[in-house]
C-alpha cells in the first residue's frame, strides 16, 4: 500500500470527507512525524511503535569506488521500534488490548 492507497482507505471509511480533505489529513500526520524528528524529538504512538533520533558522529569514510578518503559529516538518523501490539499482530500472535501497556 502506498500513501495514495491509504488516502483511498480513509475516504472509504469516512465517506463524509472529500478525497481532498482525506489527503490533507494523511499528509498532516506524516508531516507532524517529520517535523518532530527534525526537531530531534521522540515520537510514541501507542500500539504502533516509537521513533527515535540517533546522532551519528562525523567520521572518515572511503568512496567505495575510488578508495579516496572522504569526510562524512555528523548526522541524525531516524530509528523505528515496533510497538508490542503491532509486533505481535505482524507475527500472527494472539493479542488482547489488555496487553497494551507498552508503546
Amino acid at each position: 500500500m502506498t500513501k495514495r492507497g491509504l488516502i483511498d482507505e480513509v475516504v472509504k471509511r469516512f465517506p463524509r470527507f472529500s478525497r481532498r480533505e482525506a489527503e490533507v489529513m494523511v499528509n498532516a500526520v506524516f508531516d507532524s512525524l517529520t517535523s518532530a524528528l527534525t526537531r530531534g524529538e521522540r515520537i510514541e504512538i501507542r500500539g504502533f511503535g516509537s521513533f527515535v533520533v540517533k546522532n551519528r558522529q562525523a567520521r572518515e569514510g572511503r568512496n567505495p569506488k575510488t578508495g579516496a578518503l572522504v569526510d562524512v559529516h555528523a548526522k541524525r538518523v531516524p530509528f523505528f521500534k515496533v510497538g508490542k501490539e503491532l509486533r505481535l499482530r505482524v507475527d500472527g500472535k494472539p493479542w488482547t488490548p489488555a496487553d497494551s501497556d507498552e508503546p
Binding site: 502506498t2 500513501k3 491509504l6 489529513m25 512525524l33 517529520t34
Partner: peptide, 24 residues
C-alpha cells in the same frame, strides 16, 4: 481519523503487506 490511519497501517502490515509512504 488519526486512530483510523494508524489502524489501517496496522491492518495492512498484519497481512504482511508493505506500506510505502513517499517522503517519509
Amino acid at each position: 481519523v488519526v486512530e483510523a490511519i494508524f489502524e489501517l497501517l496496522k491492518e495492512r502490515l498484519e497481512q504482511g503487506e508493505k506500506v510505502k509512504v513517499s517522503g517519509f
